[in-house]
Amino acid sequence: MFKLIWILLLTTNAFAFDIKKPITLDIGLGTWLENYGQTQATRDGETNGFEFNPYLSLATQYNLYKDSILIPEAGYIFQRTSESISRNQFFLRADIAYPLNKYLRVRLGSSFMVLMTSGEGGEDTLDNGDSTETYYIPDERKTAYNQTLDLALEALVDKMSYKLQGYIYSFNEEDDRMYSLSLSINYMIPFREIVK
């Protein structure tokens, strides 16, 4: 009886035999260009340009269909913290990648962005014309959630990849559509090297 159950279990599992194992585990480091070229950066009207806002990501690659690859990814964007206010931003995302040739591939996907803003509370006195006024520092954590449509071009060189990715917020609403960019270097570790 015990052997019969055992065989049944193995048979059930056998149906899952054409499993796609991950090809690689990718570790990425890059810069996050939030709302690139779309926010006021100086009083003279210049917009924000390139700056280094580091982010880290972890991804895996699975063969999907023919040459296409599924790439789920999780990342954390290091945020600058100052003057009693801090932000934390991370994302869960997935792409489908399609190779253009041996060295280049395009990626289409979507991200689930989580942005947490919090403050220490308290008061601050700031200019108000010819006098000063008391204003208040946030004292709780609030979280904003967004979905983005993502497009990327990625260059592959050996175990490294160099990726330029765009994240379109409100892609179907022209009024408040904005985009962020990321530039990253990814190190792709073949999965068979990890699981020997």
């Binding site: 280094f52 806002n53 580091p54 290091f78 945020q79 600058r80 913290t81 100052s82 003057e83 206010i85 801090s86 932000r87 008061e123 601050d124 700031l126 204003y135 208040y136 520092i137 946030p138 004292d139 709780e140």
Partner: peptide, 16 residues
């Protein structure tokens, strides 16, 4: 770089 200052908005009411 993470420790560079960047945010400074304030609120109009003490309750936010």
């Amino acid at each position: 770089l993470v420790s560079l200052p960047s945010y400074a908005f304030r609120l109009n009411t003490n309750t936010g």
